[in-house]
Design a protein around this nucleic acid. Structure first.
Lengths: 100, 100
DNA sequence: ACCATAAATCGAGGAATGTCGATTTGAAGG
DNA sequence: CCTTCAAATCGACATTCCTCGATTTATGGT
């Protein structure tokens, strides 16, 4: 667990927003067009619309969150679903508690 | 409390090290030359030696930590002493707990 | 095969950060 | 006053980050 890498990943308003929104997707995102629920995560398009930023930027941000292991990815057909990786988040918080 | 600003301040190995070292100055820093203890904090020189970086860089880093309210400064004569601001750190951790 | 859609990657410009040495400011002591 | 030492600020350059539009890579449907 790279503490500093995690801080870098979270040192951006949009990425922080995304992490928070993903805590409660039903509340924070519009539904998927095919009606699929959020149990596997949220697809990039829906996240992108919410942020109001370009598709490439959001895709890039998601890859940064993924490199930091803050999110888990699952590809299903054309779609890629992203959801929080709660294990990393828990580990991050307790490491911070101990070492900061 | 600017969550993202705090993450930025901590998104650097040296700054993170400094914060951690300041948790236990007796253990992590050499004593002050005049024998003064660390109750008011650690002077810049001593921190600088420990990091091995230039004086200007360390002074700059300390100002970043201060802008984020992660440290408290006290000027005494020629020296400036820096110590952790535990209140901000506590608030940061609990805010992260709640909102991340 | 061909088209449409979702996501990732590429290339680029500007902004912010990292880092240094040099200079300036401020305080203490002779 | 003048010197000396600690710390802050300045100016510069290199690296990283932000953000976009354009292109490419999957995948599905007709």
């Amino acid at each position: 667990m790279q503490l500093v890498e995690l801080h870098k990943a979270l040192a951006n308003d949009t990425r922080m927003d995304i992490m928070r929104w993903m805590s409660d997707p039903e509340k924070n995102f519009r539904p998927h067009k095919d009606g699929k629920d959020f149990s596997d995560g949220v697809c990039v398009q829906v996240i992108q619309e919410k942020t109001g930023m370009s598709q490439s930027t959001v895709s890039h941000y998601l890859s940064i969150l993924q490199r930091a292991n803050l999110v888990i990815t699952e590809r299903v057909g054309k779609w890629t679903y992203y959801k929080r990786n709660d294990e990393t988040i828990r580990a991050f918080l307790s490491e911070l508690q101990l070492t900061l």
